[in-house]
């Protein structure tokens, strides 16, 4: 059972992700952050619910929309800011960027610029756990868009066949780039596909962090016990466009749908529940917001004043790794 404190911590984590994305958008517009940025706004309950069910040493594979996963898995916020600003002090020394966040110490085995590219990789860490007799589990995040890649079929079959300690978490946010999922899915429920591989396929309310958490806990236990993989489909909604430069067509964002999902905001839902069930103070969100802004001010200051990667240092490594000398 989660304690009151843990639930408040989950509320805070979701708020951190929400505010992080808001600030990244601002920094992008101001030119401090460049490149392809995909916001996780509205989907915070998935990353926070899943990662709270994991240990620090459990592995996760993230996606191109990966800021939320990194934050929820415990990566240093200032290093994530620094990475997105291309600094030497970034999580990946400025070599990965927004779509490729790695933090091995915290079990973050990488985002992925290739939709569906991370799914077969997740087989590998899960296989390694079984190989070494370790009880570390792997979570593979992917989207309903990636579920249409061949890698999904290959990987889920192999994981089921060998009962690998792997949890497939499908973030069904209803959009693949600009295309709504009713145009790409032959059946709206990805979870149903699990039947074809004889593994549990579970639908979670992806905007309800405690539902995601509880369902992930079950899947994690099952995986640690050696009973094999689970497919969890988290139904959620991508509030923003695909990225900073791709806007959705208005006909794909009917007012009723947008408003309906706004009423299901994951942060509001948890806050309301905490007030009802745990007697949470009315101004807690305000307090948390202040704490977060304080943290962010320091983190952004750290990132902005960090050096960019050193070219000579890079060329030294590149010469040896990529044999540039032979040129």
């Amino acid at each position: 059972m989660l304690t009151r404190m843990q639930k408040i911590q989950m509320l805070k984590s979701m708020m951190i992700i929400r505010e992080f994305e808001a600030l990244i958008k601002k920094l992008y517009k101001e030119g401090d952050v460049e490149g392809a940025i995909h916001c996780y706004t509205g989907e915070e309950a998935v990353a926070v619910g899943v990662c709270n069910a994991l240990r620090k040493d459990d592995y996760i594979f993230s996606t191109h929309r990966g800021h939320g996963h990194a934050i929820a898995k415990g990566c240093s916020i200032k290093k994530v800011f620094a990475e997105l600003m291309g600094r030497e002090t970034g999580l990946c020394k400025g070599m990965g960027g927004s779509m490729h966040l790695f933090d091995i110490e915290n079990g973050l085995m990488g985002g992925n610029g290739i939709v569906g590219g991370g799914i077969p990789l997740s087989l590998g860490t899960a296989y390694a756990s079984k190989y070494k007799g370790s009880d570390r589990v792997t979570v593979c995040f992917f989207s309903e868009g990636a579920s249409n890649q061949g890698t999904f079929n290959e990987s889920i079959n192999m994981a089921a066949l060998w009962k690998l300690p792997l949890i497939f978490v499908c973030e069904n946010n209803l959009f693949a780039a600009t295309t709504p999922s009713y145009k790409t899915l032959s059946h709206p429920d990805i979870a149903k596909r699990a039947d074809g591989y004889s593994i549990p396929g579970i639908i979670a309310d992806g905007n309800h962090v405690l539902d995601v958490y509880e369902k992930t806990c079950k899947a994690v236990n099952r995986a640690r016990e050696g009973e094999g993989p689970t497919l969890i489909e988290c139904k959620t909604y991508r509030v923003e466009g695909h990225c900073m430069v791709l806007k959705d067509l208005p006909q794909h964002r009917p007012k009723q749908e947008v408003e309906g999902w706004a009423d299901k905001d994951p942060i509001d839902i948890l806050e309301k529940e905490l007030m009802q069930d745990e007697g949470l103070e009315k101004d807690i969100r305000e307090q948390l917001y202040k704490e977060i802004q304080q943290e962010f001010n320091e983190a952004v200051q750290y990132a902005k004043t960090s050096p960019f990667p050193d070219i000579n240092e890079f060329m030294k490594i590149a010469n040896s790794r990529y044999q540039l000398c032979e040129e």
């Binding site: 990488g110 990789l121 087989l123 390694a128 061949g150 192999m158």
Partner: peptide
Amino acid sequence: TPISESGIIGLATGAAMAGLRP
């Protein structure tokens, strides 16, 4: 393995990330 080349090489890559030498 099944006839799943992406699965095979993806698995090998992930296993290498976890310290194995596939």
